[in-house]
């Protein structure tokens, strides 16, 4: 399943999993595939306020750097520390063990602006942005 139906997506290739007012965030299968082997992530610290559409993390492969934009606004309440030692989880398991952080939403309505699996898949088939 390249684009699970229970997740929401952004045009910048992040995915979001909602769980009780909190959003777990990562990058999509398409994004990690485009980047190639992920070797390093620069993730925000817990407690950082982030704003939807604004860059809050970077993912690095051997020959590329990609910005990660916050899909929703809120506060970072959890960061996936496992990625420090095992950045390859982003490639191997982008939707589960490769998650990046959890954002506590300041405005839940934003969640509804995101794409569903079908819409995102269409975007990707057009070659992304």
């Amino acid at each position: 399943m390249k684009y699970p139906e229970n997740l929401k997506y952004t045009k910048d290739h992040e995915w979001v999993r909602m769980e009780g007012g909190k959003a777990q965030v990562g990058i999509t299968f398409y994004a990690q595939d485009q980047l190639g082997d992920v070797v390093f992530l620069e993730l925000p610290e817990v407690g950082t306020e982030v704003e939807a559409g604004v860059m809050f993390a970077t993912v690095e492969s051997v020959k590329a750097v990609s910005d990660v934009y916050a899909p929703v606004s809120g506060k970072i309440v959890e960061v996936n520390e496992a990625l420090n030692d095992s950045p390859e989880l982003v490639n191997e398991d982008p939707y589960n063990n490769g998650w990046m952080c959890v954002i506590e939403l300041s405005g839940p309505s934003e969640f509804d602006n995101l794409m569903d699996s079908n819409a995102y898949q269409k975007l990707v088939e057009k070659g992304g942005e």
Binding site: F40, E60, S61, V62, K63, A64, V65
Partner: peptide, 9 residues
């Protein structure tokens, strides 16, 4: 660590 460098970043 070439991502630090000008030809990529």
């Amino acid at each position: 660590l070439q991502t630090r460098e000008q030809h990529i970043r």
